[in-house]
């Protein structure tokens, strides 16, 4: 445990990097993912096709391969940015595909029949979306999105493989010097668990809140 306490400063800074990567790519992937879903359910075939292709590509490539590709290929193509930024961009682009899938499945939980019933009663499309589709889709989608965000948290650890000093990389470095793997990695594991728990609890809270407003 002493190794953790003695290196608290760099470890906390590394934790800060992990949280930074997490928060920025979470926001980015939620926004991008929703846009992809909108494209995917839009009446324009080209947009639908592009969104479908996007999801297929990123769901079917390992994140590590994508990271390595970005870190080594982007500079080669003349695009230089800080490593942390590269990681954030890759995570955003990658997780957006999963967000899009989750949101789409949420929309699909609202039976087409309910949309038909709403239209048959004279509600306009915008009213149908607002009063019938969205309130139900949101409820269905909070928990799956929470899971995507937890997966995103775990995926931030891959940043260590391309030289970003975030939590996993930092504890690894501390251990190389102190050789106390059990307390050091346990502390790191507990930190990830605490973050994941926080995300899960937040998702649960939001879900309850939306449920009460029904």
């Amino acid at each position: 445990m002493t190794a953790v306490i003695e290196n608290l400063d760099p470890l906390l800074r590394a934790l800060g990097t992990t949280v930074l990567i997490l928060v920025v790519s979470a926001i980015g992937s939620l926004v991008l993912g929703v846009l992809i879903t909108v494209a995917r359910v839009s009446p324009i075939p080209v947009l639908r096709g592009a969104a479908f292709a996007y999801v297929q590509v990123f769901v079917n490539i390992p994140l590590l391969a994508l990271l390595l590709l970005a870190v080594f290929a982007l500079p080669d193509a003349g695009l230089l940015m800080p490593l942390t930024t590269t990681v954030i961009v890759v995570l955003t682009v990658y997780e957006a595909a999963y967000v899009a899938e989750a949101v789409r499945s949420g929309i699909n939980t609202v039976a087409a029949g309910q949309v038909e019933a709403a239209r048959a009663m004279g509600l306009r499309l915008s009213q149908t979306l607002r009063h019938v589709v969205v309130p139900q889709a949101v409820r269905a989608v909070v928990q799956p999105l929470g899971n995507v965000m937890i997966a995103l948290l775990m995926n931030t650890a891959l940043a260590a493989t391309v030289g970003v000093v975030e939590l996993t990389s930092a504890v690894n470095k501390v251990n190389l010097v102190a050789a106390q793997p059990i307390p050091i990695f346990t502390a790191a594991g507990l930190t990830y668990m605490a973050l994941a728990l926080a995300i899960g609890l937040a998702a649960g809270r939001i879900e309850k809140k939306v449920a009460i407003h029904r």
Binding site: V110, A111, G113, Q114, E116, A117, A118, R119, A120, M121, G122, L123, R124, H131, V132, P135, Q136, R139, R214
Partner: peptide
Amino acid sequence: LAQLRADVGMVFQSFNLFGHL
């Protein structure tokens, strides 16, 4: 069309009640 539909009631095989209401 929405206006016309408002004057025409429709009952479906699968009820199609709004699940959140």
